[in-house]
Computed example of a mutant assay.
Amino acid sequence: MLTIGCHMSVAKGFEKMGLTAVKIGANTLQFFTRNPRGSKAKELDQKDIAAFRLLMNEHHFGKILAHAPYTLNPASSNGHTREFALETLRDDLIRMESLPGNYYNFHPGSHVGGGVQTGIDLISDALNQILFPNQSTIVLLETMAGKGSEIGGSFQELRRIIDGVELQEKLGICLDTCHVSDGGYDIAGRLDQVLEEFDHVIGLSRLKAVHLNDSLNPLGSHKDRHANIGKGTLGLEAFERMINHPVLRDLPFYLETPNDDDGHGEEIALLKSLYHGS
């Protein structure tokens, strides 16, 4: 069965978010833990979360994916910026234990002139400070497009972050199809080779989730501009290959395409029609 969902707003509550997902044909979802451009987190409503967990079980949801705010930058040379990132990441991981056994994704950060290795060291250090042995959440580093001073635009950079972390069993990777293509990996034309390189550098056992996005820009553009499925430079045939690839087909897929709920429902139906097997 294809496990697929999209990014949804949790502002109205977890149960309503889950009901919307079911309505549009999704069996998983992604949500921001707080304002994607800010730091304030809504107080958790445990009754709402309990209802959401029942709904997830009833409709056989795959693992859901929480997304950290875009503003976090644990790789910054600014101490205040790093501390803000640490506080937010730490708080999010504690809150995620109300939805145990799921995923938490974040953009590794930008070194902003401090140098790639220094930025990598700071990200690893942040993870060493926030991860704890009994957490049930797996933290996912997202593959990035490599724009500006972004870290994570190559598999090697992600590997170096992981190498600096003590509790490596708490880490995985979320592969973003737009970012990977924009970063120079030909996921549309040479999918097998890209996955072989991922396995060689990082290890496929760490690949836990996929952000399924087309790209407005060509291979290696380092731009990060998402497009609707089949409407960008990757093309619909590439997505059919991706969702049916033996390495990827059983992973959860999350749409981050520029669509409303109805548009995402149409994309989900389209991808289900392209999925081979039950």
Results as ranks from 00 to 15, higher is better:
Y275H: 11
E267Y: 10
V112C: 08
I268S: 15
R160F: 05
V112I: 10
R206D: 04
Q135R: 15
A238V: 02
P133W: 07
L141D: 05
D125V: 05
S149N: 08
F84C: 07
K231F: 00
S77V: 06
G152P: 03
M1D: 11
D250K: 14
K147R: 13
Y185C: 03
L122P: 00
C178A: 09
E169M: 10
N213K: 09
N228D: 13
P108K: 07
T137Q: 09
Q46I: 11
Y103C: 05
E43M: 14
E267Q: 15
D250E: 14
A75L: 03
V201F: 08
F253L: 05
S215T: 15
T233E: 11
G189P: 06
H107E: 03
A145W: 00
Q117K: 15
I4F: 06
T137M: 06
D261I: 08
A85C: 07
F253P: 01
L212S: 05
G115F: 05
G5H: 00
A145T: 03
L131A: 09
I243K: 04
L236R: 06
L167V: 07
K147L: 04
V112D: 03
A209P: 00
L191V: 00
D121A: 12
D262G: 09
L175V: 01
L93E: 15
L65M: 11
H276S: 10
N134V: 06
K63A: 13
M17T: 15
I49F: 15
V139S: 09
E150P: 01
S215V: 09
L271G: 03
N73I: 05
E240V: 00
A238E: 02
L2K: 09
H264C: 06
G183S: 12
L127V: 12
V194Q: 07
G277L: 12
H111W: 09
R82P: 00
G38C: 10
P69R: 12
Y275F: 15
A126G: 09
V165T: 13
G62W: 01
T3C: 08
K12E: 15
L248H: 07
N27A: 15
N259S: 13
I173A: 11
R34G: 04
A188L: 01
S154Y: 00
Q129Y: 05
I151V: 10
L127K: 08
G115K: 08
R159P: 01
Y103V: 01
H111Q: 06
Q156E: 15
H245Q: 09
S154L: 05
V22P: 05
H80S: 14
R90N: 15
M96F: 04
H7A: 15
H245G: 08
L86P: 03
N228S: 13
L234D: 05
D224W: 10
R241F: 00
V139R: 04
A85G: 05
A50R: 11
I24G: 12
T137W: 03
E142A: 11
F198I: 07
H111R: 12
G232E: 05
R34M: 14
Y185P: 03
A85L: 01
K23N: 12
T71L: 14
R225N: 09
P74I: 06
M56K: 10
A209N: 02
N259M: 13
H211E: 01
R225T: 13
R90D: 09
G235M: 08
P252G: 02
